[in-house]
Structures are given as C-alpha cells and as structure tokens.
C-alpha cells in the first residue's frame, strides 16, 4: 500500500522585515491510509505550523516552506491555486479548536454545509441540504433536522464542534487535519467528541492528523504519536510504546510532569526551565539545556534520527541504533 502522506525534511520559516524564524525544522514522517497520528507538543513546538503547512494554509508572503510534501501522490508544494482548492475540502479538510471561526455567524449551519457540498460536488442546493442532514446524523447530532436550521451561536459548544466535523466530512476527505479540536471543550463533552471522531475515522477509513498538547487525548485517539519540540520531531512510535517506554528524555519528562493521580505529599516531576526561544536555538539538541541526561556532545550538533526498533524513531544521542533509520 502507498502511504497517503509523505513529508520529507519539511521546514517552515516565518519571515518579517527584520527577522527570520524557523518554526519547523526538518520534519519527516509518512502516514498510511486509515492511520491516526497525533502531533504532541507544547505551545510553539511547531505542531500546528506543520499541520497547516500540509494544507498550505500559512500566509504565503510571510512564510517560506521547504522540503517535500506529497498527499495522495500529489506534490502539495508544486500545486497551483486551482489544484490547491481542489485538494482542500476534497482530499484534505480541517477542523479547528474554535468552531465559530469555521462558520459564518449570520448564515444557518445547514445552508453553509449545503453550499459547500453543492459547490464541490456540482449538485443542487436541495441535494446539498439532504446531504447535510445525513452528515448531521453521521456526527450524532440529536434532532438533526431542527439543528440544521440553527445559526452557529444558537448551538452549544459540543454541537458546534460536531457541526464543524460534519462540515469537514461533507466532501469525504481522505485526510482530516484536526487542530486541538477538543481543547476548548468541557471534560464531559471532550470525551464524547473524541469517541465520535474515533468511530467516524473507523467507519470512513480516513487518516487523521491530530494536533494536541494533551497526552491523555493522544492516548484515546492515536495509533501513532510524533512528539515535537522546538520545531523538530524528537520521537515517533506507536502510541502504546511511546507512552509506556519513551525513548527521548523530553517525552519522559512530559509524561512525568503530567498531573495524573500522583501522590499528593510529593513534589511533581518537572522539566526544568522553559522551551527555547525559536529565534536563538541552542546549537545542538534543542532540548539539551533542559535535559537531565545531557552529554557534552549534545551541544555539538542536532542529533540524527535513530531507529532502535521497527516503527520507532528518536533524535537523541543516548538512544542506541541497532538499525538504520527508515527515514531521516
């Protein structure tokens, strides 16, 4: 089977008159059809930027994308505007943290979805509306017919998120990009949306790139995780292996400092310091200044990707490499 997404040595620079900041630095990964990959990282780690680059949603004047992105066999970086439009919403679609940004506040949600369907499929509005109803049923919105008539602000947070998922699914994408779609939701609603996304992914067989900062969310939904730090993927592997036996010290630090029923009388494990300033990255491994196991060599150059076991890659000098990496 061909991979659906292949990203090689992706870099994103944000350019202003005075400065040039590399937000994503040599990111490579590939995804098979039907795979769910979580990009995990803290704010500023480049996880959202990476995802937006897949869809070329970054401001073209202020950003420069380098490397290679292939989605469904097509070179995304070489696409002209028409091909790009056909890809967005056709092959790839996206859901956001704040669903209000995806909807026009003064148009009924049903009409908005119907319009998208009508445009992309070249069908009538009535047919589009019928499809919208199907989609609302698909995302388990109760009393769907009535909710199609609602304006975005009339829906509760959870319903709005479901409506946005319906909008994103309206053209049966092969790849769904999800940018922290459950972060702003209440706990009891977040789990509903996660379970929904998981079952939709299985039913429709689509691939999902899911960006989150929450390890728990990744554990619920991901097949594979990619841990990002300071613009680089520092570790990838199946969610099971990464959560149980992390290879990179940053991953173990993140796991240790996530508050989850630790004993109350002891201090929490922490990663000392703060994430680096992207304008002045340390010369070697970006994590070295905060790393409890840093060696002298860590500062000499960015560590190469090594693969100690099939399907696992880490960028750390401490990780031994019995095998050649599958991709660098």
């Amino acid at each position: 089977m061909q991979p659906l997404v292949e990203v090689e040595d992706l870099s994103v620079d944000f350019v202003t008159r005075e400065s040039r900041v590399r937000a994503v630095n040599g990111v490579s990964f590939s995804m098979m059809p039907g795979e769910v990959m979580c990009m995990l990282g803290e704010s500023g780690s480049g996880k959202s930027v990476t995802m937006r680059a897949l869809m070329r949603l970054l401001p073209p004047k202020r950003s420069e994308i380098g490397g290679r992105i292939r989605i469904a066999g097509q070179d995304v970086l070489a696409m002209d505007d028409r091909a790009l439009r056909r890809m967005r919403g056709g092959v790839v679609s996206m859901i956001f943290q704040e669903p209000m940004t995806a909807f026009d506040p003064v148009v009924r949600v049903g009409d908005q979805i119907a319009e998208v369907v009508a445009q992309h499929r070249g069908v009538s509005r009535r047919e589009g509306l019928r499809r919208a109803l199907e989609l609302f049923d698909l995302v388990r919105i109760p009393s769907a017919e009535r909710r199609l008539q609602a304006y975005p602000h009339e829906l509760s947070g959870g319903l709005r998120q479901r409506a946005m998922i319906a909008l994103a699914l309206s053209c049966e994408p092969k790849l769904l990009l999800a940018d922290e779609p459950t972060t702003a939701l209440d706990a009891t609603v977040q789990i509903q949306v996660l379970i929904l996304l998981r079952s939709l992914q299985r039913e429709l067989g689509m691939s999902v790139v899911f960006v989150t900062h929450d390890l728990g969310v990744a554990a619920e939904i991901a097949d594979r995780v990619a841990i990002m730090y300071a613009g680089r993927i520092v570790e990838t592997g199946s969610v099971r292996e990464v959560l149980r036996s992390p290879l990179h010290p940053y991953t173990s630090g993140l796991l240790g400092s996530t508050v989850h029923d630790q004993p109350r009388d002891r201090a929490l494990e922490t990663i000392p310091g703060a994430p680096p300033d992207m304008r002045a990255l340390p010369p070697g491994c970006s994590f070295a200044p905060r790393c409890p196991q840093a060696l002298g060599e860590c500062a000499s150059g960015p560590p190469p990707a090594v693969s100690p076991a099939p399907g696992r890659v880490a960028r750390c000098l401490r990780v031994a490499a019995p095998q050649q990496p599958e991709y660098a």
């Binding site: 000392p272 310091g273 703060a274 680096p276 300033d277 002045a280």
Partner: peptide, 10 residues
C-alpha cells in the same frame, strides 16, 4: 537556578 539560568531571552 532551574528557571533563571537557561533564560531563553536575550
């Protein structure tokens, strides 16, 4: 020490 030493700012 942990917070102030690796101060990321210029």
């Amino acid at each position: 020490d942990k917070v102030a030493t690796p101060a990321p700012m210029a």
